[in-house]
Computed example of a mutant assay.
Amino acid sequence: MSGQVVVGVDGSPSSLDAVQTAAGEARLRGRGLRVVYAFLWPAMHPPSGPSPLGPVGGELRAGVERVMAEAVQRARTAAPGVATANAVIAGEPRAVLESQSRTAELIVVGNRGLGGFAGLLLGSTAVHLAAHGHCPVMVVRGRKDATGDILLGADGSRAGRPAVDFAFAEASLRGTPLIAFHAWNPRTERALSGPADPRALVCAEERLRDEATRQLAEALSGKQEQYPDVPVHRRLVKAGPRPALIEASGSAQLLVVGARGRGGFPGMLLGSVSQALRRHAQWPVTVVR
């Protein structure tokens, strides 16, 4: 994919942080940046004229222009050499950004917005884009200083392969090591098998550990040859994937996960693990379908 990096804004501090992050991502990729304000008329005050930004005394237009000017300035300060364009698009934010994702290389949004209609841009829209977008979606949250490794939540599933590709490419762009993280939980098999001899439980855990090792190796197969510049550290953890990844994210600069993996139910486009990470991870999270 060779499109721009697109960032959604609404004037909230979270969205301006997202602009700064998006500018850095565009610079890393050698791409342009497109700052998008998705404009939706308040339901109780529909426009009386043909223009989507008027004729409500110019106040609405002036407010949007202030937001856009501040966002563009933030982008140019963060990445002076990046070509930055902007667009105000009338429409429901989720639909607007989903449409933008068709030609984008990456969509970046903040973790929370202003509330009401504006909040849709950076709240529920992050979930919607992760489930329905046509490119990776980065949700900016937590601390802003880009230190630490790239943390990849790898489960060895076919659905998780694009996330593996993205994580390696991102680590190569940033010149940082990659931590390939796989969590396995012996409680699942215990619950299914019921009370058992302690020796049987030990054997079951060993079997699960071996399977987790195989799944992680399968997920990384061929990638170290493709990205010889990326040091890879494999980490197997005996724990539930959600709390384990949230805790591990504290020492990473970016967390990358798939939209759904082995634990997803049919029809669930966004897995419970990626949803939990989007809400609670300590660093930016990129969800890759």
Rank of each mutant, 00 (worst) to 15 (best):
Met1Ser: 13
Ser2Lys: 09
Val6Asn: 03
Val9Cys: 08
Ser12Glu: 07
Ser12Leu: 03
Ser12Thr: 03
Ala18Gly: 14
Val19Pro: 11
Gln20Pro: 00
Ala23Ser: 11
Gly24Gln: 14
Gly24Ser: 08
Glu25Lys: 02
Glu25Ser: 08
Ala26Gln: 06
Arg27Tyr: 05
Gly30Val: 07
Arg31Glu: 13
Gly32Ser: 15
Ala38Tyr: 04
Trp41Phe: 07
Pro42Gly: 12
Ala43Asn: 09
Pro52Cys: 09
Gly58Ile: 12
Gly58Asn: 05
Arg61Cys: 03
Arg61Val: 02
Gly63His: 12
Arg66Asn: 07
Arg66Val: 11
Arg66Cys: 03
Met68Pro: 06
Glu70Cys: 01
Glu70Lys: 12
Val72Glu: 14
Val72Thr: 14
Thr77Lys: 13
Ala79His: 11
Pro80Ile: 14
Thr84His: 10
Asn86Trp: 15
Arg94Ile: 11
Val96Gly: 04
Leu97Ser: 05
Leu97Cys: 00
Ser101Phe: 04
Arg102Met: 05
Ala104Asp: 04
Ala104Met: 03
Glu105Lys: 00
Leu106Thr: 01
Leu106Met: 04
Leu106Arg: 03
Gly110Met: 10
Gly115Arg: 03
Leu121Cys: 14
Ala126Trp: 02
His128Ser: 15
Gly133Val: 08
Cys135Tyr: 05
Cys135Pro: 04
Gly142Ile: 06
Gly142Pro: 07
Arg143Gln: 12
Lys144Met: 10
Gly156Ile: 13
Ser157Thr: 11
Gly160Ser: 15
Ala163Gln: 06
Val164Thr: 13
Phe168Gly: 08
Ala169Ile: 06
Ser172Phe: 01
Gly175Lys: 03
Thr176Trp: 02
Thr176Asp: 02
Pro177Ser: 05
Ala180Gly: 07
Ala180Asn: 09
Asn185Thr: 09
Ala191Asn: 14
Ser193Cys: 07
Asp197Asn: 10
Arg199Thr: 13
Ala200Cys: 03
Val202Asn: 12
Val202Gly: 10
Val202Lys: 13
Cys203Asn: 15
Arg207Phe: 10
Glu211Asp: 13
Thr213Met: 07
Leu216Gln: 00
Gln224Trp: 02
Val230Tyr: 06
Lys238Ile: 00
Ala239Leu: 08
Gly240Met: 12
Gly240Tyr: 09
Ser251Cys: 05
Val256Asn: 11
Ala259Tyr: 03
Gly261Ile: 02
Arg262Asp: 07
Arg262Ile: 05
Gly264Gln: 00
Leu269Pro: 01
Leu269Trp: 04
Leu269Arg: 15
Leu269Ile: 02
Gly271Asp: 08
Ser272Ala: 12
Gln275Asp: 05
Gln275Cys: 07
Ala281Lys: 05
Pro284Asn: 01
Val285Glu: 04
Val288Lys: 06
